[in-house]
Write a protein that binds this DNA or RNA. Structure first.
Lengths: 146, 146
DNA sequence: AGTGTTGGTACCCATCGGGAAGTAGGCACT
DNA sequence: AGTGCCTACTTCCCGATGGGTACCAACACT
């Protein structure tokens, strides 16, 4: 009862953490949103989210793989596939294979995915309002501390 | 103009991506939220967010380092410090050193952080409504696909 | 037939998340 | 006074994971 301080605490933390996870669904949601590209894909499929290039597409919710790859730009094929698969797995997007010419695949938001996208707009609104404040604070912090 | 396909595309993607980043502040927000523990810390400091243990604290917005470490449980000292520093850097929390007895440090949400927490509640609401759907879909997907 | 397009997969590496353990400094107990 | 424990970290290390590039398969066009 004297030398197991750290280990015991860690073990107890583990069990607490599990229970914690079970009762807190937002934990799962946060992990899903923690994926770097999920938000971008959601925005792309949700339409009207990207000021610069969104004008080209308006509100279309169905996009092909290569379209997504082009619009999101920074994403690599692997990460895009990975992200789309996880979203499909969670029932947020649908994947439609059209095995005709050079096998086109189109992705579309489900109602569930669309509802998440709508919710994320709240976050986007917050970001657009406050991101300049954050960046200012960050710069000031860097200058006085680093 | 034949062998530089991938490289050129990558270079162009890079410039597009930068411009993209500049015009899309939500990108930054998403990166901030991409941090695994940011949401948890925000919830802890925001109060009334964890059903199981929140009852003990009610709505208190000021917490000490060790308090956060205990409540969030799964987090390690390193990650907690790291997360708190990044949040402080972005002006979302304040860090107050009370150099009295065994030097306590308390953290508190700023108005900015509080506004983000409020916004995240929308997300939490979505999670609590739909997380069961997501988990069901996920299980079904796993069973039919391997 | 060779090249391009479409939608991926395989491999490989750098980065980073994350844990265990160590650190500083003051006080309390012995 | 020395030991040890409390607080709030920091440092080291490793395994996982992110992420990029190269490659694959099929088919149309030239």
């Amino acid at each position: 009862m004297a030398t197991t301080t750290a280990a015991q605490r860690r073990a107890q933390a583990k069990s607490e953490f599990d229970a914690f996870l079970a009762v807190c669904p937002s934990r799962q949601l946060l992990e899903r949103l923690s994926d770097k590209w999920v938000g971008l894909v959601l925005c792309a499929l949700g339409g009207g989210s990207f000021p610069s290039r969104a004008g080209e597409r308006g509100e279309s919710r169905s996009m092909r793989y290569s379209e997504l790859l082009r619009q999101i730009a920074g994403v690599s094929p692997k990460m895009l596939t990975q992200t789309l698969r996880s979203l499909e797995r969670d029932g947020l997007v649908t994947r439609s294979v059209v095995a005709t010419v050079p096998v086109t695949v189109s992705y579309e938001l489900t109602d569930l995915g669309l509802s998440l996208h709508v919710t994320m707009r709240t976050l986007k609104a917050w970001a657009e309002t406050h991101v300049t404040d954050v960046l200012e604070r960050r710069t000031a912090y860097d200058e006085q501390s680093g």
